[in-house]
């Protein structure tokens, strides 16, 4: 059971977002970068399948040189190998371009499953997994909370929550699985495993190493163009609802919600 996990470098969810001078992108000043939280579930699930069936786990990322931190983190969690696709053209590449780089990166790896987070907590798109699945012409199972691989390792079952119900889906392998909260509790890398990770095989490739043309990546090649970025409109100042007693305050709140906000 060989698994690939695609991991992305994103601003920590505690980050206050500011708009950069270009008016189109996030100001990176003071931002703490982490592995996309949804990708951690993918690493954990791949490790659990390896523990159950044997095989290898490969962690892959595409971006600037600092992606080394999250690839090493995946390896410190227990992945066997890492691949960093490092290229200046990664900057501003859209999900369809990123998918091409990642798919080219794993062309010599015989995988059964590919994991990635159900969305990046930065751009909130959820497009990478389907783009990868399309390029490879394999099934996609999105936003899953449970993964069960059959004993013969030829198929899998997943639980996919949709509005108000959970779908139990069966699929052939190989497949792309995108992961969401509730799938598992990702393990922490111990100090010993962090040291061990540094001795595991870690490859680096550029786009040209993968026979890809850098001109087909980056901002110029985007299918969706960002015109401007803005912060949410300020909310009107809060109305603090007063009352002599909680009962009075509750009565006034109910009145305001009914008469002013027309929300109940």
């Amino acid at each position: 059971m060989n698994s690939v996990v695609f991991v992305k470098y994103v601003p920590d969810t505690e980050t206050w977002i500011k708009v950069a001078r270009d008016g189109k992108s996030m100001d990176p000043e003071g931002v703490k970068w982490v592995m996309n939280p949804y990708d951690e579930f993918g690493v954990e699930e791949a490790l659990r399948l390896k523990e159950q069936f044997g095989g290898e786990v490969l962690v892959v990322s595409f971006g600037p040189p600092k992606i080394k931190e999250i690839v090493l983190q995946g390896m410190a969690m227990g992945a066997d190998r890492g691949l960093m696709i490092i290229d200046d053209a990664a900057q501003q590449s859209d999900p369809w371009a990123v998918a091409r780089a990642l798919v080219a990166g794993i062309r010599d790896f015989d995988f059964d499953l590919i994991f990635c987070g159900q969305r990046g907590v930065d751009q909130d798109q959820g497009l990478l997994g389907p783009a990868v699945a399309q390029l490879l012409d394999i099934p996609q199972l999105l936003m899953v909370q449970k993964v069960e691989v059959a004993e013969d390792q030829k198929s899998l079952r997943v639980h996919r929550p949709v509005e108000g119900r959970v779908l139990v889906l069966e699929s052939s392998l190989p497949a792309v699985v995108t992961t969401t909260k509730g799938l598992n509790e990702p393990r922490y890398a111990t100090l010993q495993n962090i040291l061990k990770a540094k001795k595991k095989p870690l490859d680096t490739a550029s786009l040209s190493d993968l026979d890809l043309d850098a001109a087909e990546f980056g901002e110029e090649a985007r299918k969706i163009k960002v015109e401007e970025m803005s912060l949410p409109p300020e909310r009107p100042p809060i109305t603090m609802v007063q009352g002599e007693t909680p009962q009075e305050a509750a009565a006034e709140l109910a009145r305001l919600l009914h008469e002013e906000a027309r929300a109940i």
Binding site: P11, T13, T15, W16, I17, V19, K24, M26, V121, D122, Q123, D124, R222, K223, I224, K225, V226, E227, E228, M229, S230, L231, P232
Partner: peptide, 14 residues
């Protein structure tokens, strides 16, 4: 919305 609606982008198509 991006960053879970901490910001918004306006986009057009290639």
């Amino acid at each position: 919305p991006i960053y879970a609606a901490k910001a918004y982008i306006k986009v057009s198509f290639a």
